[in-house]
């Protein structure tokens, strides 16, 4: 796949809650070619410290306006620098990266996501709905202010269930309980998850029991994003070596990989 290394202009930067950031960037090629599960590497500073660009999922991509959106959890040095970007400043972008989800020969999917992991599935929800696929979303967070991409997921989902650990919004408790209520009826052709190890283990279990086809969006530290550095390894379930999250993923069938 063609990968671009270009500048992207900062169109807007919006703080969401206490720890998230929504960034709209302008770059025609990323906006044109970004597909579900693709990600980009962003560097918004010139010097060598921090040295590496940071990987983020493409949340929205609009080929007509040339704009794309990222949702970022401000958590370390790189993301704190991105939080300080000013409108009309420029960042460098490498992408689209990762293996896109291209197979939509299905009728119903479930999305089980938590925290900033929700950002990974928005484009999938949008593109699936465009193709007439039913999208059931289970959006979870510790508390209401940490629900990420809620409006977008409400827009693209056929049905959405929200769960918070403290009950501030939606179901008071674990989103897995809500998913379980749907597993047999209506059931999902595929269940995707992102943002929680517990969720990943749950999806893996359900897959193993033959109740769904489970898929994991994996997130990990990476340097190059295209298979050169071999930094983002995840163990193969067969025990024979590793996949690279950047190039073999970021989405894996749950039965193919080892989750701690």
């Amino acid at each position: 796949m063609k990968v671009f290394y270009e500048k992207a202009k900062v169109i807007s930067l919006k703080r969401i809650g206490d720890s998230y950031l929504e960034i709209v960037l302008e770059n025609r090629n990323i906006a044109r070619w970004g597909r579900p599960a693709n990600f980009v590497l962003i560097k918004g500073w010139e010097n060598y410290d921090p040295l590496l660009a940071r990987p983020f999922d493409i949340v929205q991509a609009d080929g007509e306006t040339g704009r794309f959106m990222l949702v970022i959890k401000v958590t370390g040095r790189g993301t704190r620098l991105l939080a300080k970007l000013e409108d009309k400043s420029e960042v460098s972008v490498i992408g689209p990266l990762g293996k896109a989800i291209e197979d939509f020969s299905i009728s119903r999917i479930g999305l089980l996501v938590r925290g900033v992991g929700a950002a990974a599935v928005v484009l999938l929800a949008e593109k699936a709905r465009e193709r007439g696929i039913e999208v059931y979303t289970f959006l979870s967070a510790s508390t209401g202010s940490r629900l990420v991409c809620r409006e977008l997921l409400e827009k693209y989902s056929t049905e959405i269930e929200i769960a918070t650990d403290d009950g501030t919004i939606g179901y008071h408790g674990d989103a897995r309980e809500r998913v379980s209520a749907y597993l047999d009826e209506p059931g999902f052709d595929r269940l995707y998850t992102c943002g929680s190890r517990r969720f990943a283990r749950f999806v893996k279990d359900m897959d193993k029991q033959g109740r769904i086809e489970g898929y994991l969006f994996l997130e990990t530290y990476m340097a190059c994003g295209m298979g050169d550095c071999h930094g983002c390894a995840v163990g193969k379930a067969t025990g024979e070596g590793y996949y690279l999250v950047c190039k073999d993923g970021p989405v894996f069938r749950s039965s193919d990989v080892v989750i701690d």
């Binding site: 590496l52 340097a223 550095c229 930094g231 983002c232 390894a233 163990g235 070596g241």
Partner: peptide, 17 residues
């Protein structure tokens, strides 16, 4: 097959692999 993860970490102006 290489080493178990984590395999890389950023350091000041560098990285360990």
């Amino acid at each position: 097959i290489g080493n178990p993860p984590p395999r890389i970490v950023e350091t000041p102006c560098g990285m360990l692999n």
